[in-house]
Computed example of a mutant assay.
Amino acid sequence: MVAFRYSLDKSSKKFICPNCNKKTFVYYVDTEQGKYLTTDYGRCDREQNCGYHKAPPKGKKAYLIDFLTLKKISDKACKLVDVNGVISIIPTSQILKQTESKCFITEWYLKNSNIQYSNNENKYFNSDNIKIINEVKAIKEPQSVKPSFHSLQLQDKIIREYESQQFNDNLTTYLLSQFTVDEVQTATQKYYLTGANYFWNNATLFWQIDHKEQIHACKIMLYNSCKGKRIKEPYNHINWLHKAIKEPDFNLNQCLFGLHLINEDYQKEIAIVESEKTAIIMSIYLPEFIWIATGSKSNFKFDLLQPLKKRKCIAFPDKGEFENWHNKATELNNQGFKIAVSNLLEKTILQNGSDLVDYYSKQKVS
């Protein structure tokens, strides 16, 4: 029977990282005992600036691989065709868990194969007394929960309240210190940027609206009104509208920020960045592009990028993230996407984590 004993805590709890001393550390959980492992086992969410990750000592690391077909060819081996058409003969002992279209394959095997896996989800499987039984049969996955959407009426209500209160959220205050009133008004109206006092005073609301005008989510973040940077101390000031208005059954299903803009001009090339703020500011600097944000570096993936498949795109990853986004874009382009990835920031002396706005701001000053 396949045993999966250790996993990263899936709750929202964060602890002090033993490496960087920030409250961004996720502990490993012993799923059999329902307890955390010792406090040095876990992963820091600050992947670029810290990168600390210590996994449990007992266990096999495996990556989740999407496949087109997986067939048993003998008692000891299976034939796998992954989503990129790569054919591999895999020992059954190296397939640790399987569903109808995905399976976890050990890191040891993947390192010696042609299957792309470095950006995929990974888990640790307990290696004590495991008997791998791979009959390679389809396992019915649980039915997916229907995604939730915010109503247009709710959005309109919040926007009207924001306008009637005649105050600026901190990010808008910062933008007005850098650009003209007309430039800021055009950009904020285009992205439906609003403010509210949810969780924190003068917070900024970022509406995730898709190309069909469905509101998938609304992210709430707090910025410094003078520097325009997100407030991350003593904790990361990020939350969601459905939590603010207490919708406990809301099933979050994100989309790209700015996705609603892709139908406005089919001739414009689409530019993809990580930060919502970066997309808004770059729409002022370079309006010849349609600027869209992933909201996090891990959201540069098929599920969210699928609506852009037929469009010409150029991605601008934050410094230090070029290789990951380039590898992912290569996978996507093999599936029909048209995404180029810029290494512009990698050529600069900016520190890791810097984005396109940091680069253009320095160009503006010089």
Rank of each mutant, 00 (worst) to 15 (best):
Asp182Arg: 07
Val83Arg: 04
Tyr174Val: 01
Asn239Ser: 15
Val357Ile: 12
Pro147His: 08
Phe250Arg: 06
Tyr359Val: 05
Tyr285Thr: 02
Lys137Asn: 11
Val181His: 01
Glu264Ser: 14
Ile16Ser: 11
Leu110Lys: 10
Cys78Ala: 15
Tyr285Pro: 06
Gln155Met: 15
Glu32Phe: 15
Lys309Met: 13
Phe199Ser: 08
Asn112Glu: 14
Val2Ala: 14
Lys328Asp: 06
Leu241Ile: 10
Phe199Gly: 07
Tyr198Trp: 08
Ser296Trp: 04
Arg43Gly: 08
Lys310Thr: 15
Lys72Ser: 12
Tyr63Gln: 07
Lys123Gln: 14
Pro317Val: 13
Met221Thr: 04
Gly320Trp: 00
Asn112Leu: 15
Val357Cys: 13
Gln143Pro: 14
Asn134Ser: 10
Arg5Lys: 14
Lys229Gln: 09
Leu70Pro: 04
Pro91Tyr: 03
Cys20Phe: 05
Tyr359Pro: 02
Cys255Asp: 05
Gly258Tyr: 06
Phe179Val: 06
Lys364Trp: 14
Asp82Arg: 03
Val86Cys: 08
Glu121Lys: 15
Ser177His: 05
Tyr162Leu: 12
Gly320Tyr: 01
Asn112Ser: 15
His260Glu: 05
Gln98Gly: 09
Lys319Met: 03
Phe257Cys: 03
His326Glu: 08
Phe4Pro: 05
Gln166Ile: 08
Ser366Arg: 15
Ile280Gln: 02
Ile272Gln: 00
Lys54Tyr: 04
Asn324Cys: 04
Arg46Met: 08
Asp9Phe: 11
Pro307Gly: 09
Asn197His: 09
Thr180Cys: 06
Phe104Lys: 11
Ile238Leu: 06
